[in-house]
Write a protein that binds this DNA or RNA. Structure first.
Lengths: 330, 330
DNA sequence: ATGAAAGCGCTAACAG
DNA sequence: CTGTTAGCGCTTTCAT
């Protein structure tokens, strides 16, 4: 292993100069600096993060906690986090807690001790649990994604507006009875989506919202809920997310119910699977990588200034209309 | 921040006893140990990884490098890596190199300096580049996934057998002219899949393989290649992976060509998207999380014994038959 | 602009 | 079984 010492003796300076040349280039005479950098490159020097972190108290590492990496939603968020963190010079620990609230708690706790800050995506714990957890992070070293709690910095999508647009779209197509297949009870975005539908339903030509309750946020959840939607006499289904919507489509296809001929389907998140479905799914989307990136920006900003005001970033949503929605049956 | 020192004074022992109680519980009297552990818990002590790593030379961190986290294949591998690493007491840095071979090189280099070992999944570099890279990791601290090179430990899937089975399946259904939509030129698994098809084609009732060349390993790649398959007079298409296969299905559907009525389609990897397609995709699958887990096991084993022989783990593949394959048209 | 020296929190000899 | 001590590689005063 090559250390600052090796670089120092190779370039005939002291180790402090090496350290400075590497991290504060301006504070070193340009001639010396060049010599040092050349020696470092030549020897293949790679700074030891553990050592520098130990001394400086800065680990140059962030953590990101997600419920499930295989869920395309979180894969995209994690990708955005990783990419932006890299731009800021941070490495990132990715932790998949397998949809388990108590593991979430544990992992955030340890990550907080090991990293400069953590991004907590779609926490499965209650607001109180999350607040308690984050309280352990002095200086706001935690940022939430997809959950908004006063006092804790967060990045969320404007789901309310998205849901309003989705319902407007369906109303314009003549739908007057729309079923909603919900997500996990602790999901903040599920609350927002419900809220958007409710508001939109009351505003203008009346539309009836049929609440189909909570489903597991996977294909299977939608598959099981599809029959409830037809049973309720709805002409359109709005699903908690794309996977659920795909499950609905799957079941309808199996029963020979045409989409969108007899039933329209709308998803949320506009993940890449939306285009894989047949028919391709109309979905309320957000730029998920941008969500991850924004969370990192927030974190980095606060690490630079712990007293910065708590900010809530709300990313825009957009209704992407594809072939799964059409005019309502008479 | 609470340190070993705080725990030591709280429990009336020396710092070394604290350290031992935490990491080698057997070497400490049980009474003392209980006292120390209680104090640690009470104070909310979290060991500082940087410090322990600096001293012990062990970072308790692994790295995993993937071309694209949003690709379900790599999401699953990364998930497997993370989960197994956790069981072994390691954290994991996940790095997405965005399909870029030169970033791959850089990242592996830095990771090797920062971690105890790295899992390099589906390297985009050439064999020579990979060997050069790995040569920098004394004691075999790098493990390849989805690429086999002599002298470097690896975990691969038995793609040859998988391809043989896929072709056997198609032959049994009466197909005599099968098109293959290939993946990236540097892909090792693409080579193996081709090899399997070639072998199987020659063995038994003859089947003609039409090589459609390389495609981008995404939906778009399959979409563009689909017309080549029909143009070539094939009655079945084998695609490099599930995404490509879905692209093929998409284009065929658009053209009104029935699957499997007029054309059968087979994918590889059996990622969750295979079941989302319509018709659901017949695919040659491997347990991807297990692949990731095996890579970690290999790494951990070698970290324990750097002189252990280089092993190549080959995971079984399995043909999962779904609705996208049927009897050949007359 | 540069060097000397202290020490971050922890583990690993070495004593006892 | 437990305590003392040295020092991992680096950054950071404090001098010069």
């Amino acid at each position: 292993m090559v250390t600052v010492r090796d670089v120092a003796s190779a370039s005939g300076v002291s180790i402090s100069t090496v350290s400075r040349a590497l991290s504060e280039p301006t504070r070193v005479a340009s001639a010396t600096r060049d010599r040092v950098l050349a020696a470092a490159r030549e020897l293949g020097y790679e700074p030891n993060r553990a050592a520098s972190g130990l001394r400086s108290g800065r680990t140059a590492t962030l953590g990101v906690v997600v419920p499930d990496l295989e869920n395309p939603y979180f894969a995209s968020v994690a990708k955005g986090v990783q990419a932006r963190a890299r731009e800021h010079g941070y490495g990132v620990f990715v932790v998949d807690v397998e949809e388990d609230a108590s593991r979430e708690t544990d992992e955030v706790r340890t990550l907080l001790a090991q990293t400069d800050g953590v991004v907590l995506a779609s926490p499965r714990g209650t607001d109180d649990e999350v607040v308690a957890l984050v309280a352990r992070a002095p200086g706001g070293r935690a940022v939430l994604v997809n959950r908004r709690i006063e006092g804790v910095p967060s990045v969320t999508a404007d789901d309310v507006t998205g849901a309003v647009r989705a319902l407007g779209h369906l109303r314009a197509l003549g739908h007057r009875r729309v079923a909603y297949v919900g997500g996990p009870p602790t999901s903040w975005s599920d609350r927002m989506r419900r809220e958007g539908l409710r508001r939109a339903a009351e505003d203008g030509e009346p539309v009836q919202i049929v609440d189909l309750g909570a489903s597991r946020p996977h294909v299977q959840g939608g598959y099981s809920a599809a029959d409830l939607a037809t049973g309720a006499g709805a002409t359109a289904v709005v699903a908690y997310n794309d996977l659920v919507a795909l499950g609905v489509e799957q079941r309808l296809r199996e029963r020979g119910i045409a989409v969108p001929g007899q039933m329209s389907v709308v998803g949320f998140d506009d993940t890449f699977v939306a285009t894989l479905a047949s028919p391709p799914l109309t979905s309320v989307g957000t730029d998920l990588r941008a969500v991850g990136a924004a969370a990192v920006d927030l974190l980095v900003e606060r690490l630079g200034d712990p007293d910065a005001p708590v900010t809530h970033v709300v990313r825009p949503t957009e209704l992407v209309v594809r072939a799964s929605t059409g005019t309502a049956v008479a």
